[in-house]
Nucleic acid binder design. Structure first.
Length: 426
RNA sequence: GCGGCUAUGGCGAAGUGGUUAACGCACCAGAUUGUGGCUCUGGCAUGCGUGGGUUCGAUUCCCACUAGUCGCCCCA
């Protein structure tokens, strides 16, 4: 094989792309209802943006970025996630001055992470995400979560679970962090190597460890929820209360930790519970990032959002055996017989297409039988047959492929007739 | 970054250290000289991921690489 697709990337072939279009269309429609407007930022940014925005201790920055030097000597990185770039644009375009606050944005496009591919993980993948920047109302956290859940529900997914947690504000996080270090420090040598490193970098992650799950210190470890200060606790209570009002079921998991540095207060994940879905069950991750806008150089501005992968969404649909309502077939196939008819078929097809009818014809010089087989394969609703006989009499035969019924129609009436039968127009 | 498994035609899938690489689906043609979905007949891999090595000889044995796949870490 001469050339191969780069590792961890995929071609979305015609048989799949209609599903993508369908899902994307539903996502855009939801954003219209929720009044989130699309923002399109570049696929690459200055590397520095992600170091600052995502956090230079995160796995994404430490080992997963596609970084290169451009011809001008700048360090450029293919975006590994969407939020940093959206916030950059928010600040750069001074959207904090927009009279419509909060600023509600969505994006849909490819992200890049240099990782070992596996089920549900790619080096290029497509994220749909929203960001609501400029409001500290817990109702907007609930709105963002509701939008994500709406997308899954409207596509028919049933086996999904919403998990939420609160990471608290800066002072709550700090108090909890110190409590965790104090809790584990004396006996950290009893834990796995990863956990020993985590104690320094991000002690919160120890709670998430799969290997040491059964260790007695795990069960007695301080929960973040016990370290939330009054304000953080009240905020979390309100978010939960709004979710209840919206009838959105959720689970609180005090061990839910998100991978990016910028999160505080609300953190959530939506996971698939479908059997055989694979090891990676996270469909969507999001949360609040109140310090990020300032970190990127803007005024102190709160924000909340989520990102979800279309690949995983489609995988979840497949795992639940859900077929999307996608129209596959074409309206009409023109079968031409004989040299003269073949020439006449070209303008006929053109005229029908101009009327909004989807039409195909033969370009392989196939026999009649094979042309019908092609029409059948394309799931054509109707076949128009034009041959020497018909041409001589200025008519065409129109066959309904479902019923097998065939009628003769004058060429002058043909487009009108086809519009009527294909589109119900008169 | 680490580990398991895998790599044969458009797809699925057998197979052997030695002259012609099963079979199924799909596709094409004919039976049916102007009509699909059924049936029958025929056609369809100078090639067995790539590159080395062992051997008189390798698709089959060994190594490396590449890719897929599943898992670990972590994430969407």
């Amino acid at each position: 094989m001469a050339f191969q697709i780069p590792r961890g990337t995929q071609d979305i072939l015609p048989s799949e792309s209609s599903k993508w279009q369908y899902v994307e269309q539903i996502a855009r429609e939801l954003c219209r209802r929720y009044n989130y407007k699309e923002i399109r930022t570049p696929i690459f940014e200055h590397t520095e943006l992600f170091l600052r925005g995502v956090g230079d201790t995160t796995d994404i920055v430490q080992k997963e970025m596609y970084t290169f030097t451009d011809r001008g000597g700048r360090s450029i990185t293919l975006r590994p996630e969407g939020t940093a770039a959206v916030v950059r644009s928010f600040v750069e375009n001074k959207m904090y001055g927009d009279p419509n606050q909060p600023v509600k944005l969505y994006y849909l496009g490819p992200m890049f992470r240099y990782e070992r591919p596996q089920s549900g993980r790619f080096r290029q993948f497509v994220q749909f995400g929203v960001e609501a920047i400029g409001s500290n109302d817990p109702a907007i956290d609930a709105e963002v979560i509701a939008l994500a859940m709406d997308l899954y529900r409207s596509l028919g997914l049933k086996k999904i679970k919403l998990v939420i947690n609160s990471l608290g504000d800066i002072s709550s996080r700090k108090a909890h962090r110190e409590a965790l270090i104090a809790h584990f420090k004396g006996r950290i040598h009893e834990f796995c190597e990863d956990c020993q490193v985590r104690l320094e970098n991000n002690p919160l992650r120890i709670l998430d460890c799969k290997k040491d799950r059964e260790h007695e210190l795990m069960k007695t470890a301080p929960s973040i929820l016990d370290y939330l200060n009054e304000e953080s606790r009240a905020y979390f209570e309100q978010v939960k209360s709004y979710l209840n009002k919206l009838g959105i079921p959720f689970e609180v998991d005090p061990r839910l930790v998100r991978g990016l540095d910028y999160y505080n207060h609300t953190a959530f994940e939506i996971m698939s519970e479908a059997e055989g879905f694979g090891a990676i069950t996270t469909l969507c991750g999001g949360g609040r990032y109140n310090g990020l806008v300032q970190e990127i150089g803007g005024p102190e501005t709160p924000g909340v959002g989520f990102a979800l992968s279309i690949e995983r969404l489609l995988a979840a649909l497949a795992a639940e055996g859900i077929a999307l309502p996608i129209e596959e077939g074409i309206d009409c196939y023109v079968v031409a017989l004989g040299e003269e008819a073949k020439k006449e078929a070209v303008p006929l097809v053109y005229a029908l297409r101009n009327e909004g009818i989807s039409v195909e014809k033969d370009y392989q010089d196939r026999k009649v039988k094979a042309q019908f087989k092609a029409a059948d394969r394309l799931q054509a609703k109707y076949v128009i047959i034009v041959g020497e006989d018909e041409l001589a009499r200025n008519v065409a035969n129109v066959k309904n492929m479902q019923t097998g019924e065939q009628v003769e129609v004058a060429l002058s009436e043909l487009t009108t007739y086809m519009k009527k039968v294909c589109k119900g127009e008169y």
